[in-house]
């Protein structure tokens, strides 16, 4: 197992490229769905201690719509796609041409809005996943996507708990895709958290040694 805190430059480059390819495909899907030009930020690969990780995602109790896909197979890990609630509403409204769709109605999740949201985010997260599987050539199985609208910290800590038995750090590959035209910008963040056991498989799949 690679110690999280000692990644070489080339390893970091590989991880950035993974973020690039995954989010690039998702951005293309989002562009097709919205019929709009979509921008993508250069991926940030970072190793964050648990104590800071939730601050790092922009406030632990920030309410977000979060979609999670578990990956099993050669490269276990978790992919999240997270948006602020109002941004997610903009995304779904743009896509469906239904300007009144809501995600939260009277303090409760709106069933129709949530169902549309699930479908949209499923397409985006699946694009990311497919690109990851193609790029690495590994056998990966996605779970069904799980949706939760709640505090960012509560959603993300689910995956931190999974790796917390062996580490106090999370490796996060963070890529944002955004639509900045119109009055309401949409910025969605992909977070890919590979399981620490998967690092060597990941690096070998793209032809570099575990120790760089």
């Amino acid at each position: 197992m690679v110690e999280n805190n000692f990644l070489t430059d080339i390893q970091l480059d590989v991880l950035r490229e993974i973020g690039n390819i995954g989010a690039g495909h998702a951005a293309a899907s989002m562009s097709a769905l919205m019929n709009k030009k979509i921008d993508m930020r250069v991926p940030i690969v970072t190793i964050v201690p648990f104590v800071d990780v939730l601050e790092w995602v922009g406030g632990l109790d920030r309410p977000v719509a979060g979609m999670m896909i578990h990956i099993s197979g050669d490269l276990p890990g978790t992919i999240y796609f997270m948006l602020n609630i109002d941004e997610d509403e903009t995304l779904v409204r743009c896509m469906t041409d239904r300007p009144k769709v809501q995600l939260v109605d009277n303090g409760k999740p709106d069933r129709f809005g949530v169902s549309l949201f699930k479908e949209t985010d499923n397409i985006l997260a699946a694009s990311y996943f497919t690109a990851l599987a193609d790029f690495t050539g590994l056998q990966l199985q996605p779970s069904v996507p799980y949706l939760q609208i709640d505090m960012a910290g509560a959603i993300l800590s689910h995956s931190l708990i999974e790796v917390s038995q062996m580490t106090d750090h999370a490796l996060i590959i963070d890529t944002a895709i955004s639509y900045s035209g119109g009055d309401n910008p949409v910025r969605g963040g992909f977070l890919f958290l590979p399981h620490p056991d998967a690092f060597s498989t990941l690096f070998q799949s793209v032809g570099i040694e575990e120790d760089g």
């Binding site: 109790d61 505090m151 910290g153």
Partner: peptide, 15 residues
């Protein structure tokens, strides 16, 4: 913490 300070933690899920 000791009074008058207060103490807080955010975003508890399964934690």
């Amino acid at each position: 913490v000791k009074s008058p300070d207060r103490i807080k933690t955010s975003g508890l899920g399964s934690c």
